[in-house]
């Protein structure tokens, strides 16, 4: 099967520092791949490379088997429609000057071709999809809770009818009771729209709930990759083991002396 998105031996440099080193990844249509690692592991940089927001120093970026490493403007039209992103911090992901209606309408207006009534019906449908009622239509970001903002971001990402969502820590800034709601929403949306997920997180327990495959990043390198059950329950790399050992499940945790 041809991957929807693929990275081959990608290296990204910021000055002398290599944020990503010869990383390879493939996201199959409809699959869910988790990308885990700590700060500075290069996971957000990889996401920006996939979105063509970040140029690479070496390597290739492919979509549906066609190279888009240096594509611009019109050549990226398929990527801009089929691959959408949800960012970590919902507070900065919404323009404070735009209402919910205007935020969700943005991608539809950019792509064009919808009449006024159809646009409105589409927006109503999208908000319904993410569990927001029509009373939210004209609210501004500062009038929404973190969870509601993240739902708006998801609705906006779904608007162009994408085949893949790239999710950058979408629940890290949220309360656990809200995180559970968003995880549930993402699972349902994925099933309904046959979406592929690339899910970035430092929280292994959340990755386990949303993904079938997992790649572990450390200082810009993919150190381990495989099915979730295999990586999490029989980790091969020391760093994966260290990550797993750091998880503090709800309950009494005995810590070794420092």
């Amino acid at each position: 099967m041809i991957p929807l998105l693929e990275l081959r031996d990608v290296t990204v440099r910021f000055g002398a520092h290599a944020a990503v080193r010869e990383a390879s990844l493939a996201l199959q249509p409809g699959a869910a791949l988790g990308l885990v690692g700590e700060s500075g592991s290069g996971k957000s940089t990889l996401l920006r490379v996939l979105l063509r927001l970040q140029d690479v120093a070496a390597g290739q970026v492919l979509m549906d088997g066609a190279e888009i490493t240096t594509a611009r403007n019109a050549a990226l039209r398929a990527l801009r429609r089929d691959v959408q992103v949800v960012f970590q911090n919902p507070h900065s992901a919404l323009n404070p000057r735009l209402s919910v209606h205007d935020a969700v309408a943005e991608p539809l207006l950019i792509q064009g071709g919808l009449s006024r009534t159809k646009l409105r019906a589409r927006i109503d449908g999208l908000l319904d999809d993410v569990g927001l009622g029509p009373e939210f239509l004209w609210r501004y970001p500062h009038e929404l809770s973190g969870g509601q903002k993240q739902r708006v971001c998801i609705a906006r990402a779904l608007a162009p009818g994408p085949r893949a969502l790239l999710l950058d820590e979408p629940t890290s800034a949220l309360d656990v009771s809200v995180q559970a709601q968003i995880i549930d929403l993402l699972r349902r949306l994925r099933a309904r729209h046959q979406l592929a997920f690339l899910f970035i997180s430092h929280n292994l327990a959340v990755v386990q709930l949303l993904c079938e495959e997992i790649a572990v990043l450390r200082q810009g390198e993919v150190v381990e990759r495989g099915p979730v059950a295999a990586v999490l329950h029989a980790p091969a790399h020391d760093y994966t083991r260290a990550l797993l050992a750091s998880v503090l499940p709800p309950g009494i945790n005995r810590l070794a002396a420092p």
Binding site: Q179, A180, Q181, I183, A205, L209, L232, P250
Partner: peptide, 14 residues
């Protein structure tokens, strides 16, 4: 609501 790595089948509920 808390996801638990030790229980892969457990779906947290909000």
């Amino acid at each position: 609501a808390m996801p638990d790595l030790r229980q892969p089948g457990h779906m947290p509920s909000g």
